[in-house]
Design a protein around this nucleic acid. Sequence first.
DNA 1: ACCTCCGGGACCTCCCGTTGGT
DNA 2: ACCAACGGGAGGTCCCGGAGGT
Lengths: 195, 195, 195, 195
Amino acid sequence: MPKPNVREQIVDAGLDQFHRAGFNGSSVDDITRAAGVPKGSFYNHFDSKEDLAVDVIERYAQSAPDDELRDRGRPAIKRLRAHFARLAADFIESGYTRGCLLGNLTAEMADHSAAIRAKLDAMFSDWTDLITSVIREGQDAGEITTSVKAQQLAGFLLSAWQGTLIRIRSTKNRGLLREFNTVAFSVLLPPRDTP
Amino acid sequence: MPKPNVREQIVDAGLDQFHRAGFNGSSVDDITRAAGVPKGSFYNHFDSKEDLAVDVIERYAQSAPDDELRDRGRPAIKRLRAHFARLAADFIESGYTRGCLLGNLTAEMADHSAAIRAKLDAMFSDWTDLITSVIREGQDAGEITTSVKAQQLAGFLLSAWQGTLIRIRSTKNRGLLREFNTVAFSVLLPPRDTP
Amino acid sequence: MPKPNVREQIVDAGLDQFHRAGFNGSSVDDITRAAGVPKGSFYNHFDSKEDLAVDVIERYAQSAPDDELRDRGRPAIKRLRAHFARLAADFIESGYTRGCLLGNLTAEMADHSAAIRAKLDAMFSDWTDLITSVIREGQDAGEITTSVKAQQLAGFLLSAWQGTLIRIRSTKNRGLLREFNTVAFSVLLPPRDTP
Amino acid sequence: MPKPNVREQIVDAGLDQFHRAGFNGSSVDDITRAAGVPKGSFYNHFDSKEDLAVDVIERYAQSAPDDELRDRGRPAIKRLRAHFARLAADFIESGYTRGCLLGNLTAEMADHSAAIRAKLDAMFSDWTDLITSVIREGQDAGEITTSVKAQQLAGFLLSAWQGTLIRIRSTKNRGLLREFNTVAFSVLLPPRDTP
DNA sequence: ACCTCCGGGACCTCCCGTTGGT
DNA sequence: ACCAACGGGAGGTCCCGGAGGT
């Protein structure tokens, strides 16, 4: 058991703060106070708040749940549905707050910090890749029959999910989750037959 | 009304600043300086920066282009495509910056300002309503044949668009626009025949 | 019946505000808002906030209760006791807040505004004169037998009262009222005989 | 401790400023400028201006002269007279300005800051206790013979003193000092015999 | 006579990042 | 390596008073 690591505590606290209040809404002071470390210590571990954000994004992505996606024993579509259902459950539990840190920081910081944007891009990319591979497996198994390429489908699902989170946060209407589940997934389904 | 309207100038400048830098990233000083009015005048017109944001959101929504949607002479799907193509063109022209103010402010402020959230909700709602009516017309005309309800389709399109903007801003890869155009719209199209 | 007088309303509101929050704690905006008059009107009626304070002090003194003191049918000491009992009752009812506006403004402003100080002096002087005349009547009637001059007794009573208000506001202990009633008044009483 | 203590300097300057201009009349800028420290440093040491006021009150009370009261070699009444004479001398020297910080802050802030009120209460209480003990010694020695309890006498003396300061500041008439010396102290004296 | 709108400046507070001593 | 103290500057807000139109 490693001794309580100051840097880790700061990253943890930073993750929570950034998720709650955004980058500009979180002060270094807020973060160190929440971490229970002296404020002065911050700059021993990070060059800047921006630097912390990069680490926070990494940690957020690493600790995001992806068990459902990686469960190779199940059909691809079930894995995808389970994945987003899990994300939705967490979101509902929070009372439709916070949303996805990757989306939030993109909206807030993409134009202002190249380092943060690049990290967000990488994490989105990992996520897309993972979903792409699941879709590809579904295609190989014949479960997914659309002609659209796996990577595009993956990217689209992620975009639709991000947008759904945003819109639910503004409307506080969870009905949009149902739309996501039915409409977004419909693009994976085999073409419907004409009667 | 001879005197240049200070309030209007502040709203204009606030719109631009909030769009560029977000709510917390824009200072009242930035805004009044950009508006060319003395900072001290700000509070003659607005109770707070939050109060300004509410007005800015209103103005953003009102000045958003919706001609394409309202052009009742064209088929519904063409109108929808033209609408999002117009939004996309503006976005491309900006170099994939800024995104949609409604989405950005939702991501940043929905959990922290009830007034802002409510305004965002209302504007999203207007937008959804407009799209819903177009879709409904398309359904009535037999162009749109999916069984999903018009309102759900409209909501989904909007979410997908918001998410697409977010993800493009992080990846700087306009490929996602193509995904939106093909995949998102596919849900409107008549069921494809199996060969 | 004169039509609702803007100036009067400002003075009334100013009295209340100054009494609650002091001179520096009350803004012109607070006052005009409380008065229900447009803020811009203020300077049509008063040269400055200081100028208003002078009027407020006058009004405060004029509207202070002095019926008990003027009731020439009763013995002087009873009139004095009734006077301070009335002031005490008002003070208790307020929850030991506000104190005496004359004392408060003296503490806050005497060193900083000659005009205010002069007005306070005048009002204190009127009050002392009134009490002096009551004491003098008591002396003439043989009720008050101390050798101290009436004016000194009056001044002392007023000082003791002001100090009592101050101290009660800090301690929230109304016990000091009893001290005032017994100890301060004892100086008026005839020398006690040793049995 | 080699480094000039910034916090101490701020407290010193704050004491002087609050005493001269009151709480609302003193800005943090005034105080830090007088202290010769950068304004930005203020909030490293105090949570708020209110927080500083609490410390200032403590320091004011601690540095108040009480040698005369503690000089157990002298008769109690002489000690009390010497104490108030000393306070009066300081007050006269100031040109009847400033008064007592405890009384001033009570008048200005008692209704608006619980923390300040509580501190004022404590300091008044210490002061009363000290005077009470002197009076009690006088009673034990038979110098003070009134039947009133020592604590009430002490409280009354303090109230009368506070009120006297207030009234002198408004009238600029030091005659009230004489009244305090003769009338207020008379309550300590043994009952006068009738000739 | 009135009052909307204006404005320069100051209010308290907090920011992010550094420095110097341990 | 740590961190208390620091610091210049900005944060949002509100101040008192005046100018200019009705």
